[in-house]
Design a protein around this nucleic acid. Structure first.
Lengths: 155, 155
DNA sequence: AAATAATATGATATAACATAACAATAATGA
DNA sequence: TCATTATTGTTATGTTATATCATATTATTT
């Protein structure tokens, strides 16, 4: 599983370049989020972290999350109160999250055209947009196939 | 202010047609949300309701909200943990919320083409979408003008 | 109308999510 | 080194939401 490592390396380089500190706690929290299959909740992160670091308390996690969010290294999923590592933090503009109801997998999509259209559409309503939250909930391919197979067997 | 009244009448007719009960608590909660300028938080609703109805407790509000959400009469704003009356509950498909950072106003937008494109885009990623959460945060026309005017005066 | 079933509300407790405030420590810069 | 700033520790509390079981209301059946 080399990808999470490279994600951490990338984060480290980015923090260095920006002159912000990628402390052990921040690194560890990002690692936890990155190696998780789906999104993680703040208190699940806290439980995990507390095993290695007895002093961990809610502010410990929320501070680390705030930092990682500011740096664009993680995203918050508003509809789940959960957090997801960003695999392309250099990507500056809006993104869309695809959330699977079946397996909990969350994928980050970058349809820039869509983001542009949203902003244009909002502009026609007199709104100038500074932040987009786009969360699409449904089923991923695997879970759709699986549901279809089960329906098949039930016949 | 005739609009909130007609919204309530519309809700009443819709519930009657669907064979679900538009009880006094549900009606009152919808009225409160509808007459508010922006979005309302659950505990603000609770405080208001408790003044008229001493027995009101968190479950009272959350049950009413769950009902109204199910019936499509209100929307939940995930990024604010707040609730907004829907002025066109007959409208079945997706919607987009425009949230003003300045005055807190929230507007419901219906760019159906956009919703369709999102679904198509997600489909290309293997996801079949069942629910869309689209929240765009920025400034409404009034608040943009106001900010511009203030910058002008500051010169 | 009475009995039954289904739905809604009352009431208490607690779970889940998040921040305030201040003290202590560690890193950075003059 | 000393002062400054940033980070973390620590305690407490604020905010948002649900579980559970009792009671009451409404609808349905007889």
């Amino acid at each position: 599983m080399p990808e999470p490592l490279s994600l951490i390396d990338q984060a480290e380089r980015q923090c260095l370049a920006r002159g912000v500190r990628f402390t052990p706690i921040r690194r560890r929290v990002l690692e936890m989020i990155a190696t998780s299959h789906g999104a993680l909740k703040a208190y699940d992160l806290l439980d995990q972290l507390a095993k290695e670091h007895g002093a961990a308390r809610p502010p410990t996690i929320y501070r680390a999350l705030d930092f990682l969010l500011e740096q664009g290294l993680v995203h918050r999923i508003e509809s789940l109160n959960a957090y997801l590592a960003c695999h392309c933090p250099e990507h500056q503009h809006g993104f869309q999250l695809l959330i699977c109801r079946g397996c909990g997998r969350v994928e980050e999509m970058h349809d820039d055209d869509l983001g542009t259209r949203l902003v244009a559409s909002a502009d026609r309503h007199g709104f100038s947009i500074e932040r987009q939250t786009i969360e699409l909930e449904g089923r991923c391919q695997d879970c759709t196939s699986q549901a279809a197979a089960m329906a098949e067997n039930a016949q």
